[in-house]
Nucleic acid binder design. Sequence first.
DNA 1: TGATTTAAGTGTAAAATCTACATTAATAAA
DNA 2: TTTATTAATGTAGATTTTACACTTAAATCA
Lengths: 229, 229
Amino acid sequence: MLNSYSSADKALLAVDCIIFGFDNQGLKILLIKRDFEPEKGKWSLIGGFLKRDEVLDNAAIRILNTYTGLNDIYMEQLYAYSEIDRDPVERTISVSYYALINIENHNAELIKNYHAQWFSITDAPNLIFDHNEMVEHAIRRLRYRTSIKPIGFELLPEKFTMRQLLELYEAILSKELDKRNFISKINSLEILNKLDEKDMGSSRKGSYLYTFNKEKYEEKLLNDFVLNL
Amino acid sequence: MLNSYSSADKALLAVDCIIFGFDNQGLKILLIKRDFEPEKGKWSLIGGFLKRDEVLDNAAIRILNTYTGLNDIYMEQLYAYSEIDRDPVERTISVSYYALINIENHNAELIKNYHAQWFSITDAPNLIFDHNEMVEHAIRRLRYRTSIKPIGFELLPEKFTMRQLLELYEAILSKELDKRNFISKINSLEILNKLDEKDMGSSRKGSYLYTFNKEKYEEKLLNDFVLNL
DNA sequence: TGATTTAAGTGTAAAATCTACATTAATAAA
DNA sequence: TTTATTAATGTAGATTTTACACTTAAATCA
């Protein structure tokens, strides 16, 4: 019968997280060297199994927290992967999530203990199972999302310079952007606060710091902007 | 241990399909009156369970075929739903797919036997479980996809008029479009064949029929167009 | 048969947006 | 005080988008 509930076909559910970070070297992902079989010693996304009493979103949050110590992180579900032998041990459907974190905030101690490591997305090692595909998918989604939602800021410190924001978008889109055009497009959204404070780290002149103004963004009830960069 | 494979937490996997069709009354979805518990007699998306030896895409294809008799249909995975009690019988994670079909082609006999029925998306009944949410999600995704990929044609007969195409996009976007601007934007994509044949059904003058020219589209290797309608 | 009706088909001017591009400003270091 | 370095800023031309109305073709009707 087509619709009978049958436990014969139950499967394991995994959650794998593409954890993005950004620093002055560009866009990065957090990978882990597996310390268990199969594929022990190979690089992998950070993941875990869904528990009986847990929803997928919470599993993703739990896994992220376990490896980074972070809470309240932007995460979004991406896609369910179900190739029969994608995990050679047992039939496992994996649902991927991506997370955007401020790379300065994670618990360095923790990731060291887990043999986790940041890799530039342009320079990451080959990953187990279908994890390479997951990463590519996540980057495509990130490109799209950052063009319609103000989520790029999740990857930056609370206070950031226009240059950092520009370089972030360049890293995400993987193309050069015109500085003046970029700044005027960002400014036209009117969702940033320009502070009186300057960051003196990168130049003699110093550059103004900005914060994302979430209230202003929500006030405008933007249905979604369209950033044509 | 965080990563041990444990069959304690296995779950059932379902696939639910949002099947879109289009006719001169607008955009429609195919729903079924459930003939089994729970929620017997209520309206529901068409769905089924993932089998042990089956990938999600194939489960979606199988389910669509079972209820409509159709093959080679455009389908896309949407999202995994995992609320603990979303299905009251047993923990079930459902992965939704949407399908675009030419409404003239489905097997009317079959859908009658299954007590399935077409509903206007503006006028559909309340659905069981989280299926309403799935439908909303599918419409959002359809809006986005049709704006960057030539998939709207999947909902039309092979030969269609500009008016039909216009009304299709109006139904998907749920807003009125300017006829002349629409036609020139579509024409600028250069992916249609204008036939010598006219459809005489809707006017005295008759209106030219078009087909989607897939070869021309692929030739251009469009990375994705951007239809700003 | 010619008058009427109906939807099809077509073009443009003004507004808005996007693109390309170069100089001055501020400051610390030498 | 000169030099070096990055920050900050505006505009003209090109392109795209928008708003908008009349003519055409053919069947039906008087």
